[in-house]
Amino acid sequence: MATQNIKVYKDLMGENEKWAAATRRVLAERRLSMVNLIGSPGSGKTALIEATAKKLGAGFRAAVLEGDVETTRDAERIAAVNLPVSQLLTSGACHLEAKLVYQALLELPTENLRLVIVENVGNMVCPAEFDIGEHAKVAVLSVTEGEDKPLKYPLLFREAKAVVLTKIDLLPHLDFNLAACEGFIQQVHAGVPVFKVSARTGEGLSAWADWLLGV
């Protein structure tokens, strides 16, 4: 049977984009910024939020959306540092999509706040693909993971508006080549700011916090 080719041009992420746009509208109305922390499981995303909260104290007017596959353990940790928090469970999905974030944002008490930190599901591939309406994606990479990760996950490091290298207090115990890692980051995304921090010692947190508050 003869076939006919019909030309169309449709964005395949259109549905996700609608929810991301709705989130941007809510953020604009409430005068909030949103950052999306992306990194592998155990890279120190939750510890970074905890340490930032402790560093800034009551002046840190932020709420957190915790994305996880299972358990509310991370939300409990965030609540313990006195930030409003809501746990998003994806029940198996490896990333957050815009609709889930939008629905959680509507429920989140954000009065007098100016920042929403989304901690994405631990994963360096999938979360980088999904716009959740954030102002900035942030790549979180721990020095225990290996310096070549920026080359292996270029989409994440290309999309990120900042990179946080965590656990730098461990550097004396590791073979991690910091200069090589910074070189790889610049080869993938020239000019992106890189913050070297230790949640444990507090090193580097001031510069990171300054950037975060400026988003």
Binding site: A2, T3, Q4, N5, K7, V8, Y9, L12
Partner: peptide, 9 residues
């Protein structure tokens, strides 16, 4: 993005 649909005439 979706570019085209091949359909039976």
């Amino acid at each position: 993005h979706l570019e085209s649909l091949e359909v039976e005439e």
